[in-house]
Write a protein that binds this DNA or RNA. Structure first.
Length: 851
DNA sequence: ACGGGTAACGG
DNA sequence: CCGTTACC
């Protein structure tokens, strides 16, 4: 099994022989009992129970060698942990044939893999040996984490998974809009996604530590400094804080904002023991960065203070912290997940601090604190309590949206809650695929097998260093265009995978007869005899989202609560669909399949090209297009209808009106335009003036510029708007030249992509970062460095004065920022700021300035 | 550490 | 050419 196998001794309540409907939240392996277990959350009592496997399931790996040959391998059959050899039949999806393989069964997971001298290490090749044991157990028993189960006479059985009769008829109706082979998979998804998600009782915890060295975060491995406060915020209303008073002087319990229960302790040990008692009472415990800090610190500090290990509910894995009774969710890990950040929360937060995430999602800012070491006991308590409360709120806002989202992701991905909250989308998709392989009796191929059978890519990427060609981005038609309609293909890549039967098991199949069935724009062919696994999984997820969840998330005749639920499901599905293509092009993905990613992108290009051609055929001018969109110059509704109908009929992909602009402004740059909607709202894409790193003075000026453009109704109004723009540019230019600004206004804010040491070059922000470090600041990857540009250098904004600023440089930045719109408006920056017009040959011949 | 490629801009 | 940010 996996090297990272966590062997945890759970010590929670054991499930009785009969337990009512409960949600399967988690699973693991108990090293002492040598059994797999699952954790069940029973919503009536709101308690968590452990159910130990009693089916005799054992860990194993697969070998392609016959039983007899393995019997002769003394290192395998003579291994202490060896149990048995069993021949089994598996379907080899790479060859399309059934094959006989041998199950090498072991007594415990570490004997399979992960320990020195394990069985895997004595075999040249093995399959399915890197799956964590609890995953293996879930797959084999066809368990779905997040779904209801019961314990009946000691056996774990499915709870009620049936589709509620209230939706069954409607669901059957939408199935008539899909293809036959997707109906059953969609019904299966509906069973998982319609099953209600119960409220989960939980508590958030946050600790504060008094650092011995100022401005230095105390090391959780050493845990030398005292824990001064521990706050709890529970879904049951618990608002409690434990505070340390080691001053030797009597201290009265302060009034802490938001806390109902405040106790002051002279013994830190007492605080820790009480903390452990609270943690043990909850099925789910939330932290923000508990894996790396709070739980690590608590665990180690408890040890240092002589709290017996058997009172300590925290188990430290290599990267994560687990609880022996409940489920620990580290929200820092969850919100850091790029798919969650992007597709579920629309990139509303950028930094991964509790403050930033909370203020953008909850609109609750934190108390600003300069130096925690300086806080008095009350302020420290307020601060700590607030963090615990905000952490809890992150899962509770919008009617428990985030909890529901995690449970749903757990069902789709067949992953336990701990993994959903910590792993990236590639692990979720992997887990889903592995589960499906086991369900169908397919052998899960090793990464090498796929590469050897399917080879690499055949197209050339536009950007060097990339593996294959991606999407098309058309050259925009520069200028101002009125009445622009943007159509885009809904779920283009998932649709490509669905419609072209794309999957690692169908691409470049072994059949001669399929060789003519080429993916457009590639030399890859696709199987015509069997349905591909990825195609069915992604196809059914896409269809159920488009046909069922998407419409119902906005649907009429539903309560607000129902719509909300459909919306959460719809978002969870989106996360999967959007990642489904990328993972197959990622070398780190165990089912990495370059031709699959390449074919998906190729179908996308084909669809966009065809749509562009068809538009022309219909007499519509295409102004621009990127990946899955076409920008059409004042099309009639008949024309767009015809285009949509064509896409549906010829490509089987939904092409829908995404937005309509009163007018749009394009320069020659791709991924760079401004659209003004009919109601005056603005849609600004890719412009420098919108990027987050640029100085506020430029951003503010740019915002004013777009504001002016947003007010323009007709062509006739442009001259007046241009006058306003002239005034605006002149004013900002003047402020810059006269240094009429505060330093912060001209500071760039650039994020540090990696630790300072890892840079071979010295970009400006890295230079400034190094200076900050010299001044004693801690500078880590992910920090946003604020700096200003001076005559021959850069300076961190904190130590700069307006007179240091190189205003000539800033004039250039202003020009760069504004030019993107000014050229489209036929305005010259030079003229606006009173510089003589350039009389280069380029200008003479009317060649556009390069940029 | 953990999805992809395309593109702009500044140094 | 690198690094960052944005688009899709």
């Amino acid at each position: 099994m996996s090297e990272e196998e966590e062997i945890i001794q759970p010590k929670g309540r054991v499930a009785p022989d009969d337990l009512g409907s409960s949600i399967l939240l988690s699973a693991g392996y108990d090293g002492a009992l040598q059994k797999a277990y699952v954790r069940l959350y029973e919503p009536e009592s709101q308690e968590i129970y452990i159910w130990y496997d009693n089916t005799g399931h054992l860990p194993y790996l697969l070998s392609k060698k016959p039983v007899e040959e393995l019997e002769a391998n003394r290192r395998v059959v003579g291994h202490d942990g060896f149990k048995s050899l069993d021949p089994v039949i598996k379907f080899d999806a790479l060859t399309g044939e059934e094959i006989m393989v041998t199950k090498v069964v072991a007594k415990d997971p570490l004997s399979v893999g992960g320990s020195p001298g394990c069985i895997r290490s004595h075999l040249d090749e093995s399959w399915e040996s890197r799956i964590r044991y609890y995953g293996c157990y879930i797959y084999d028993e066809h368990l779905v984490p997040g779904m209801p189960y019961r314990v009946q006479g000691g056996r774990l059985v499915q709870g009620d998974w049936s589709l509620p009769s209230s939706v069954e008829a409607q669901f059957d109706e939408i199935l008539s809009h899909t293809e036959e082979h997707l109906k059953e998979p969609m019904r299966d998804w509906a069973r998982l996604l319609q099953s209600p998600v119960p409220r989960i009782r939980r508590v958030a915890v946050d600790i504060e530590v008094r650092p011995s060295v100022r401005n230095r975060v105390p090391s959780p491995d050493e845990a030398k400094d005292p824990i001064t406060a521990v706050a709890f915020a529970g879904s049951d209303g618990l608002r409690k804080i434990l505070m340390l008073n080691d001053s030797g002087l009597p201290v009265e319990a302060p009034r802490i904002e938001g806390a109902d229960e405040v106790t002051v302790h002279e013994s830190e040990r007492e605080i820790i023991q009480e903390t452990f008692r609270v943690l043990d009472r909850y099925p789910v415990v939330l932290t923000f960065n508990g894996d790396d800090f709070d739980f690590k610190y608590l665990r180690n500090r408890a040890r240092n203070l002589g709290v017996p290990d058997d009172e300590n509910p925290i188990t430290l894995g290599r990267r994560f912290a687990f609880l022996t009774n409940g489920v620990h969710i580290d929200l820092y890990q969850f919100f850091r997940n790029r798919s969650i950040q992007g597709y579920a929360f629309g990139n509303v937060y950028r930094e991964h601090t509790l403050d930033e995430i909370a203020s953008s999602i909850l609109k609750e800012g934190k108390i600003a604190v300069q130096d925690i070491a300086e806080l008095g006991i009350k302020e420290l308590g307020d601060y700590c309590m607030q963090d615990a409360y905000i952490t809890y709120q992150l899962t509770a806002f919008n009617d428990d949206l985030v909890m529901d989202l995690m449970v749903l992701l757990s069902r789709i991905s067949k992953s336990i809650l701990e993994d959903v909250s910590r792993m990236g989308v590639s692990r979720w998709i992997l887990s889903l695929m592995e589960w499906e392989h086991r369900r169908l009796g397919w052998l899960i191929p090793n990464t090498q097998d796929i590469i050897e059978a399917k080879g690499g890519t055949t197209t050339e990427a536009i950007i060097k260093g990339k593996k294959y060609q991606g999407a098309i981005v058309r050259d925009p038609v520069p200028g101002i265009h009125f009445e622009v309609t943007v159509l885009d293909f809904a779920s283009l890549y998932p649709s490509a995978i669905r419609n072209w039967n794309l999957s690692y098991d169908t691409l470049l199949c072994t059949h001669k007869e399929c060789r003519g069935n080429l993916v457009p724009g590639t030399r890859h062919w696709v199987c015509t005899k069997r349905r591909g696994m990825t195609s069915v999984l992604i196809g059914s997820l896409k269809d159920i989202r488009v046909l069922w969840y998407k419409p119902r998330s906005r649907g009429k005749g539903l309560s607000e609560g129902e719509r909300q639920y459909y919306n959460v499901v719809q978002q969870a599905l989106k996360v999967f669909l959007n990642a489904s293509y990328g993972v197959f092009g990622a070398e780190s993905f165990p089912l990495y399949c370059p031709p699959l990613a390449e074919s998906t992108a190729a179908v996308g290009r084909y669809a966009l090209e065809e749509a562009t051609k068809k538009s022309a055929e219909l007499g519509i001018e295409v102004l621009y297009g990127d990946t899955d969109s076409v920008f059409l110059n004042h099309p009639s509704s008949q024309q767009t209808d015809a285009l949509t109908a064509w896409a549906d009929e010829k490509l089987g992909i939904d092409l829908e009106v995404d937005k309509v602009y009163r007018y749009a402004v394009f320069s020659r740059r791709k991924k760079n335009y401004l659209g003004v909607y009919k109601d005056g709202r603005l849609d600004v894409k890719g412009m420098t003036g919108k990027k987050r790193h640029i100085p506020p003075i430029l951003k503010a000026a740019f915002d004013e510029l777009t504001g002016i453009l947003g007010g323009v109704q007709t062509v006739e109004e442009f001259p007046a708007a241009k006058e306003n723009i002239r005034g605006l540019v002149e004013e900002v230019h003047r402020r810059l030249m006269e240094r009429d600004f505060k330093v912060e206004e001209v500071a760039f804010q650039m994020q540090l992509g990696k630790p300072l040491r890892q840079y071979d070059t010295s970009p400006q922000h890295v230079k400034a970062g190094r200076m900050l470090e010299e001044q004693g600041y801690e500078v880590v990857a992910g920090d946003i460095i604020s700096y200003v540009v001076t005559r021959d250098d850069v300076v961190p904004a904190v130590s700069a004065k307006p007179r240091d600023v190189d205003v000539r440089k800033y004039e250039e930045y202003l020009e760069g920022t504004f030019e993107q719109l000014l050229d489209a408006l036929d305005m010259s920056f030079d003229e606006l700021v009173g510089r003589p017009r350039q009389t280069s040959l380029g200008a003479f011949f009317g060649v556009p300035p390069k940029r």
